[in-house]
């Protein structure tokens, strides 16, 4: 009885729950026993050195087949989606911005934005989104073809703004973005995550991988995690964590048992 009640509460409050998640890529275990819970409307930040498993976690949540969940569960809005295919998760309300998305020759940026809008859009809406992301000249270009680092990030955000996922998984949104554009990235992310809405009514939830933490100067995050060797080594205030990382480095941060 008690446990049922608990589930009910979690359905309401948690947008995402990761329970004892173990993920392997090509039979090599990358993530070990990861636990995480993100309440509706919150934004969490994920820190960690290169190769620690941050992207693997996002890919596993999104449901990419190469990322095999060998143990544990992914719960989205109270529903266990561990075995759900990638596209169904997307349609359920999970979206992801990629660090290095593929070039899809012949497919125009406009086509993808239109696909993200799922028929909700028209030329005008697509144009406005592109304007917002400072990509008006890119709509007729092949997606990601000869895009700069910053253009890729903005294009990913533009697609997510069209897709309007309830849970956004953002993989290093600031990497490769120059100083003049990082504020714009922050603006786009805040728009995506409905930061102008009070948290009580806010639906949009975010999990952001950040290597440098720069983006946190523009986007508020409630909780931070440090991933190290495929495990969540630390959880706490993102600014405190960032300060510790900057001062002592990841290894030291991971050793801390707080």
């Amino acid at each position: 009885m008690e446990s049922e009640q608990a589930i009910e509460i979690s359905e309401v409050r948690n947008m995402l729950e990761i329970k004892q998640l173990t993920v392997a890529v090509e039979d090599k275990e990358i993530l070990h026993d990861v636990n995480m819970a993100i309440k509706k409307g919150e934004t969490h930040a994920l820190f960690g050195p290169n190769g620690s498993g941050k992207t693997t976690l996002l890919m596993a949540i999104m449901g990419f087949p190469r990322y095999q969940v060998t143990r544990g569960n992914i719960i989205f809005k109270g529903e266990d989606i561990t075995k759900l295919p990638l596209d169904e998760r997307a349609r359920l309300g999970i979206g992801m911005s990629f660090q290095r998305p593929p070039v899809v020759r012949g497919v125009k940026t406009r086509d993808i934005v239109a696909a993200c809008l799922k028929g909700r859009g028209n030329e005008e809406i697509i144009g406005q989104l592109a304007e917002k992301a400072n990509l008006a000249d890119f709509l007729n270009r092949e997606i990601n073809y000869r895009f700069s680092g910053g253009e890729i990030k903005r294009s990913e955000m533009m697609q997510l703004l069209a897709q309007k996922p309830e849970l956004s998984l953002l993989d290093e949104p600031e990497s490769g973005v120059d100083l003049t554009n990082i504020a714009l990235m922050g603006e786009l992310i805040n728009k995506l995550l409905e930061k102008d809405c009070p948290i009580r009514t806010r639906k949009c939830t975010g999990l952001i991988i950040t290597h440098t933490g720069h983006i946190l100067n523009y986007v508020n995050a409630r909780t931070g995690y440090v991933m190290f060797d495929g495990r969540i080594a630390c959880e706490g205030d993102p600014h405190e964590i960032l300060a510790t990382i900057k001062e002592k480095g990841y290894r030291e941060c991971a050793r801390c048992t707080k």
Binding site: M96, G106, V107, D111, A115, Q159
Partner: peptide, 20 residues
Amino acid sequence: EYLMARGLTRTEATATIVRG
């Protein structure tokens, strides 16, 4: 998979790529 992550089914994603 990139297009599927935007909510297209496998068939829709393939058709989009072929059309492009």
